[in-house]
Design a protein around this nucleic acid. Structure first.
Lengths: 230, 230
DNA sequence: ATGTGTCGTGACCGATTGGTCATTCTTCTC
DNA sequence: GAGAAGAATGACCAATCGGTCACGACACAT
């Protein structure tokens, strides 16, 4: 087992401790409970910053815990593995995004008027804007890591990206059925939007010089409408 | 010095050997020379496959040399570091791409007719198609790794992506000056195209179900023209 | 054929890894 | 306040890392 791929293969020995969320010790508002939440947040915060600075693969458990001001051994009281940490990290943003895409898909299925159809699209855009404001780090982590091979701690990120692509394709297919969009091959139409949107998000989050970030959604909408609209 | 970041910091001891290309042993067509080229190619081939399977960060020198059927120590007779290997790996594709972008930029500067202007664009598209056919592995490696933080062996890839973005913005600015494109903020217009094109390339190279790959360039062109054209 | 220098090998080095565990410290329950 | 239980620590483990090096094998010039 190479050191580089240790996270890919299953651990040789079984874990002693697990499921930190399932059984909670002490009173719900007590010191224990409060500390636990604070420490877990500190670990996640430290991990996110290091992941963004160095890339997920280049960050060790020791690095994370040092930045969080704790000893290495404590990590495993909060997370079973690094993969579980990443899952936890992106869970909030993931749920928001998936729910928005699912809602759009459902709305689009029943929308009969043009207005209702465009409203379904707009809601996704609103959620993306919300994500950008409330989870910028998580979104940037997603954009940085989502294309690399799914191995080790990156697995949940790559899987999310596959879900997003699938929804984009499904939604595009429905939009074409409604004749909102040009009859371009559906995956091409869908992935064009995904690719363009993700690249622009990355530019905003990495503070590339992109002009006024607030103009970006409008410009993108114009491009998509003129380029894809039937 | 953490193990994870060992490639970032300068080596403690100085290298004994270097510049494998500068001084070549023996006759140019001799056994030595032939072997050297074959082995170097074998190393690069093994490295590329492993990089694509696991991601650059998850591949060790030992992994590469084992796959190439050689002993670890031999690696450093061919490449100073893993970073040099990656530079060498993408050099061919990089040169093609940069030269095409530079040529487009120059052509666009002097193009007076619409036809000449579109021809300048088309040449870049042709080179991308060539890259796709002749260097599919290298292109895929670029797409997989270009967004992660620039550290260690990934540095040359990330730098190439910055060059590409800069050229895209510069070319877009010229096109807007020619009034070929809508007066959308230049970086937005440029990165939209880059993002869309890269995502579609990735889909083709990863064999996502995208329909007939030959239709992709045409569809993308249609989208860009309708979406961006003035 | 002989000497010269390169090539390839695999043991070796110090550092670091994910993960474990006995021990100590802190909070909880009573 | 005392005993029980969870939480935190840091030494520890085997494996692996990038990189080096002495040495035997091989290609070259003569």
């Amino acid at each position: 087992m190479t050191n580089r791929s240790r996270h890919i293969k299953p651990p040789l020995r079984k874990k002693r401790e697990a499921e930190p969320e399932v059984r909670r010790p002490g009173p719900i508002g007590g010191v224990r409970d409060t500390n636990r939440k604070e420490k877990a947040a500190a670990i996640k915060d430290a991990a996110l910053h290091l992941f963004l600075e160095r890339g997920i693969d280049a960050v060790s458990v020791d690095d994370i815990m040092k930045r969080a001001g704790m000893a290495k051994g404590g990590f495993y009281r909060y997370f079973e593995t690094q993969t579980a940490l990443v899952e936890d990290l992106i869970e909030g943003a993931r749920r928001l995004m998936v729910e928005a895409l699912e809602a759009c898909s459902v709305d689009l299925r029943t929308a009969s008027t043009r207005d209702a159809q465009f409203a379904a699209y707009r809601k996704v855009g609103d959620v993306v804007a919300t994500l950008l404001m409330e989870h910028p780090g998580e979104v940037r982590l997603y954009l940085q890591e989502c294309r690399a091979p799914a191995a080790g701690p990156r697995v949940p990120i790559v899987e999310l990206s596959k879900v997003v692509s699938r929804y984009a394709i499904s939604i595009t297919a429905q939009a074409q059925a409604h004749r909102i969009l040009k009859p371009i091959p559906v995956p091409v139409s869908a992935l064009t939007v995904v690719g363009a949107a993700e690249r622009l998000l990355l530019a905003v989050l990495q503070e590339e010089d992109i002009g006024n970030p607030l103009e970006v959604p409008e410009a993108l909408t114009t491009l998509i409408l003129d380029g894809l609209k039937a």
